[in-house]
Design a protein around this nucleic acid. Structure first.
Lengths: 212, 212
DNA sequence: CCAAAAAACTATCGCTGTTAGTTTTCTCGC
DNA sequence: GCGAGAAAACTAACAGCGATAGTTTTTTGG
């Protein structure tokens, strides 16, 4: 087959198919050949639409981030908006957990990531936060969101509980139930989120417009 | 060469060499052949000491985590110990940033990771925190530490500032200087750490021994 | 209408992690 | 002290990976 009358591939279609594979089989399940096959095409054809695999993964990351609610910054006070935004950010990542390690690794210059940073920073400075603090706050919340989306704490405790109990006396059944892992991540995220917001609200009057 | 009179490889030696490669060239720079060459050996010999590449990476992760100070939990009050531990945890990761994405990805059952979890959980419950809260607190702090160690926020803004300025009006020079990135990460981490500790100290009297 | 770009292809490259099977050396039980 | 078996290196090889070069056909634009 040479060039078809109507194109088989498109960036959007390839990106959606890649996300579906990643959701189903993890990031290692995505190979260019597998992706191409799913799309009824041979692997090198992908290079007519993407510069390489990283380009595809960047597009997938952007697709996931598009679901984050940044409009809330225009509609609510800064603290309330931060809460809504952080929860929506986390929800978008948790919906596609297998892509998170890639997003955590190569952060840089994806358009939707920059849109996120710009929205948070703009809203905070507009509310009167000093610029340096606004940067820190955005970064701090990002750490919590990505950290909890990686879901790193409780996962892995799935095996036989007795194995651990012998060597690590304080870790008991509560930790070891695989079913509890997402509840732990949820609770830890909410605890962190409210702790941060609490401190920020308390800090706000002292810092507003004073340039720190 | 068949079996040598004195073994060339050891788990510790391979692990150290692997960490050195990762520190120098990132996680993608580590291949079994490259690692073997560095050790004066052929790649398959590694499989006499490790079950596979993941086994090597697990060992590297353990090696890095060994530097985290968990003894402090026996010597200081819980809140002060948490602060020291979190900073030491972060410092250990920041010293080897290239391994962090791997550690964030596969968290599970590495011995030193479990030792960490056990120490935090034990110290907090001993101080009177309810078990469920102790779990959440440990996870929450882990999110902050790993998130900030990924250093994901400011990195990537290294290119020409003008490119961004056009599309993202709120992101200005302050963000774009590559040299500022680690300062941002430091500041955001400290802000998050103190926010969390502040809230926990405030929560403590209400929650102690009451079972939440 | 023709040249150039676009979008598919085949063939292939070098690299990866890993396995199989071989050889030699060390270690341990009798 | 010796024989069996484990241990630790090796060579050879496999399948799969991302990516490139070059080909063919179709669409598009001046």
């Amino acid at each position: 087959m040479a060039r078809p009358r109507t194109p088989i591939l498109s960036r959007a279609g390839v990106t959606r198919a890649a996300l579906a594979i990643i959701d189903a089989d993890g990031i290692d399940g995505l190979s260019t050949r597998r992706l191409a096959e799913e799309l009824g095409v041979r692997a090198p054809s992908l290079y007519n639409h993407f510069t390489g695999k990283d380009d595809i993964l960047d597009a997938v990351a952007d697709l996931v981030i598009e679901d984050v609610d940044i409009a809330v910054f225009a509609a609510r006070p800064w603290d309330e908006a931060l809460r809504v935004w952080a929860r929506s950010y986390r929800a978008a990542l948790v919906a596609h957990p297998n892509i998170v390690p890639f997003m955590a690794r190569g952060p840089g210059l994806r358009p939707s990531g920059l849109r996120l940073a710009d929205a948070v920073y703009g809203a905070l400075t507009e509310a009167g936060w000093p610029r340096s603090q606004a940067t820190r706050i955005g970064a701090m919340m990002r750490y919590l969101v990505t950290g909890s989306a990686l879901g790193s704490f409780a996962r892995g405790f799935t095996e036989d509980a007795a194995v651990y109990a012998r060597d690590y006396p304080h870790l008991d059944q509560a930790h070891l139930l695989a079913g509890h892992s997402s509840a732990v991540d949820d609770g830890a995220f909410e605890l962190g989120l409210e702790s941060m917001l609490d401190s920020l609200v308390r800090l706000y009057p002292r810092v507003r417009l004073t340039g720190r």
